[in-house]
Design a protein around this nucleic acid. Structure first.
Lengths: 139, 139
DNA sequence: GTGTTTGCAAATCATTTGCAGCTTA
DNA sequence: TAAGCTGCAAATGATTTGCAAACAC
């Protein structure tokens, strides 16, 4: 079990069941999940846990950049653990399955964009949509 | 003024003030806007217009693929006119200004991704974050 | 002990819908 | 006239907050 560590900016933090479980769910889940999904999983392990608790823990985790919010078009806000290597997502149109894509596979260069727009690029996010293998076959 | 034209799937459509104004706002605005922003602009020209009217017109326009919803991380759903050539967005962290980026500037290949994941790629969306020139200078 | 965290309930905010009256064609 | 469109009000759903009790340290 990974020990909970807040960023240096945080003075204190307490090790609670909710936090431990939330971290565990994030670690076990490869694809981004909604707060609702997270809450359901947490509530199974900790009956009676409040949605607001999950909300606040994740809120804190996001501020501390331990989890990050990733944006998808239609679904609501999704969260995933930040520790994993930089990657992007490929979402299946049919079943909403999410595959990870490494940055190298995309190979586009920010500098060309930076030059033509005058922006300094600080971050990029790519979302691909497609149809996964199983769904292609079950057609 | 561009004439309102629904897709062939639509049997009928009526030319109303709300629709004309909504189209006009979309045409004049280069960056994606929220429903709220759109509503405010429409309401200025058409006092007393209902939010739900704007909602429903945009809903219809989206179904007819005349406007498209683009996803950003933090802000809510954003809409933009679809007619423009395929492009992506570069958002300024400081002032939320949005610059367009042509697809060619990014030059990444779906086929490599398709090969390694088994997915058939149907669409892609790129969101870059950065700091625009004015904000760099005003620092 | 004491300051953080939690559960509960309620506030907020965005999105969506039902309906009856109005408008466009 | 008739089907579409609109305003209004209210439902829904997601997100957020206040507060007192419970808990970690």
């Amino acid at each position: 079990m990974v020990v909970y560590t807040y960023s240096v900016k945080e003075k204190t933090s307490r090790n609670t069941a909710a936090k431990r479980k939330i971290e565990e769910v994030f670690q076990k889940t490869t694809s981004p999940i909604t707060l609702k999904q997270l809450y359901k999983k947490v509530a199974t392990a900790i009956p009676g846990v409040a949605y607001s608790t999950v909300f606040r823990v994740v809120e804190r985790l996001e501020k501390d950049t331990i989890v990050s919010r990733v944006g998808f078009k239609d679904r609501g806000a999704l969260y995933e653990w930040s520790g994993r290597p930089h990657h992007h997502h490929l979402v299946c149109e049919k079943c909403d399955d999410v595959a990870d894509i490494s940055d190298q596979m995309l190979s586009f260069n920010d500098s060309k964009v930076a030059k033509s727009t005058g922006f300094v690029i600080t971050n990029h996010s790519v979302e691909l949509t497609g149809i996964c293998k199983p769904c292609q076959e079950n057609n």
